[in-house]
Design a protein around this nucleic acid. Sequence first.
RNA 1: GGGAGCAUAGCUCAGUUGGUUUAGAGCAUCUGCCUUACAAGCAGAGGGUCGGGGGUUCGACUCCCUCUGCUCCCACCA
Length: 884
Amino acid sequence: MEIPAKYDPAGTEEKWYSYWLSHKLFHSEPDEREPYTIVIPPPNVTGVLHMGHMLNNTIQDVLIRRARMSGKNACWVPGTDHASIATEAKVVSKLKAEGIEKSEITREEFLKHAWDWKEKHGGIILEQLKKLGASCDWDRTKFTMDPELSDGVINTFVHYYKKGLIYRGVRMVNWDPEGQTAVSDEEVIRKETKSKLYHLRYYISDNGKKTDRYIVVATTRPETIMADSAVCIHPDDERYSYLKGKKVLIPLIEKEIPIIQDNYVTMDFGTGCLKVTPAHDINDYEIGLRHNLPFTDIIDKWGRLNEEAKIFVGEERFEARKKIVGMLYEKGHMEREEDYTSQIGYSERTNAVIEPKLSLQWFMKMDDAASRALEYIDEDKIKLIPDKFRNSYRHWMENVKDWCISRQLWWGQRIPAWYLPDGSYVVAADIKEALVEAKKRDSGIEEHMLIQDPDVLDTWFSSWLWPISVFDPEKPGFPDKKPNRDLEYYYPTNDLVTAPEILFFWVARMVMAGDEFCGNMPFRNVYLTGIVRDKLGRKMSKSLGNSPDPIDLMKIYGADGVRVGMLLCSSAGNDILFDESQVEQGRNFSNKIWNAYRLVSGWESSDNVSQNERSATAVKWFDNLLSYSFTIIEDHFSKFRISDALMTLYKLFWDDFCSWYLEIIKPGRGEKIDIHTHQSTNEFFDKLLRLLHPFMPFITEELWQNLEKRDEGDSIMISCMPKAVEYDLSFIKKAEECKEAIVNIRNIRQSRNISLKETLKLFVTDNSIPSELLSFITKLVNIESVKPISERGSNNAGASFMVGTTEFFIPLDNYIDKEQEVEKIDAEIKRLDGFLNSVNKKLSNPRFVESAPKEVVETEYNKQRDAITKIEKLTRAREDLLKL
RNA sequence: GGGAGCAUAGCUCAGUUGGUUUAGAGCAUCUGCCUUACAAGCAGAGGGUCGGGGGUUCGACUCCCUCUGCUCCCACCA
């Protein structure tokens, strides 16, 4: 059967993925084996696969496939996140496009649209993961808003509320006056914006009467002066020390406010006087709390001045600013204005300028949970890879703030709090229980009188339960409940692969929830991938259009090629600069494997051919090298150095297996191969495929199935990972010397234009390289005989070279250019002289010889001896040459 | 402003408690090859003194200080 010269991934990938699925090879159930578990960081249900997912999920698949082949019961749980804000935004804009405003429909109607939308588009990203080869246990697919997972979220809320850790309070939020909702900090885009810095005169008050002395306050928001509660100076600012204890009048409205002192003020910014507006600035809010100042809220949810403002009531905030500036000039309160550029927050969704606004939100106290979550890292129960992230993890845990868990949205788990007619509220898992609680306060309460809080919970309040709830959704909220069989078996999971950006949002909080409800950490290792950037180091984003579509890439280069391409250049925690040439390299590697198979599969073996010494030695060498490589790869994996493990394999396959081993044992044209070598080669191939399988699942399955007859349902993915047996490192090193000699000879041929067809003789120092290895030389560089150097005779010209301390000589009477030859030897001697010099310098330093460890001094003596020997030999070769 | 990190060949990165032949890899480059598995290939070669300066040490890419440049996280100046 003719095998095409190029590997075509398309059909292969489709075929084997459905084969794996139909034989349920990804599915895991608890059994007596050791479990190996990964829960996927659930992508947004509305998401589409991007390069970041590719990297992240490829790494997870490599880990899970390797574990599965190493005899573990491997379970990779997939799923999606409801992503309340992102999804709601998409649904809102989709409805808008259809002419439906969210404000015109009921909550129930909106949620129906949202669920419809989720059913339609929700599965896309998971389908895309299948193209990548992801070996997830799809039977276990979960969604953070599955009914039973949502119940767990509610129970968790009730649990923490009962513990006294959840409370309701006023806080400043990022208010989007256009979108009519609070948005999270992540949804605020800061943009450099040109504005003015106004210098305003605040007259000093004498018992409520305006004096003629004033101070100057700088502000960018003059329209908020009516909400001022104080003017603040730095306690150490001597310029203003006379103001201590005095009061000033707010311009225009002449309201008296105190002068206070706080370290927050920067003395050399503006005038050193700060107007404090606690209801409309986050920093002023903090100052207000510290100094117990009144909070005057003068801006309504539409961004207009309200009654509290007293003047310009009903004016839109920017319109009000213009008008008030005019009036300030008019009344002599404006000292001056200057151009000023600052970072202003805009809403990601509506592009409206964010208004800091006080509002009532739900919070969770974090200090205690955070300090316990920190212990898991401090005590090394959870390892971060790379561990440079420890510091930032610690920093965050030690400076944690209470968590604002309410969102003014509809898509998500609704806060289980019900308000009574008197304004008080009860918290309960459902309305029935809420009613029971409410009746305790007022027996006259009926169910219809209870009104549930309209807000939903922050998405992270459900995803922090993920490693628990995918196995046992009923566990969250109940620390004392016995875990079900799955949770008991799979938890704690092993490795979590995620991005450093969400180390705090998600990873740390999972640790807290795991500790709270399972009394244990949710995972042992956290592998933090970098960000995928483009060649120029820019983050890949839709708006820049610099992100290739992973699905297209897989079509062109094959899933295996893309996986290899991404992995080769991505060490943990480092960003990866993605360039299509990397993926090309991955594809080329697939093709190399394919062609190696083409070669080997075409061989015919025969009992009549006996194994020659050369083939036997090659088999022995590669067998040792394989074992040695296993240990190297094992070591890389133990340190999560996945790209190094892959590179080791890449070179093992391409260089050692293809370029050396196969070339050495390759039978001549039309010849048959001996049966032993053939068999060994197939075994090597089989082992290499198994080693490569976690990285390149598709091509390795295809070739493994072709290599010999397999039973239906058998698969490389459930075969076992080769293990290291003892190996002879010194033999591997001798083989390396032999390879080096071959490279030297090739170089000699090329630089003198000697065709490979021309047979040469070789003389070599006795007993330096085992003669069995010398047989490689005769084959690969067409050497007719290898003889001891003592037999070379003294009157033939040729080329000399050395490998280690072994001397080689090739007679080249017809090709020799004496001068050129001497030049080469001279250059080498010069290099060695320099080297010897540096060694001698060390050795002649008595303090080195005295204080350095014995082995180190010993090595230096060896270096010295070797260099001297080499120089002597080369000098002799030079003389011999000159004699001719 | 607070915190963390990085700086090694053209590019992307290794270099594991300072000492194993005067720094390694992959890619890219250059040269020669359509050699009967592969031109998505084969063979060979060139290329860095480890950001600058200072220090510790018998010895520094590796430890300390400093300067320069860059990146990320957090908080953001009225």
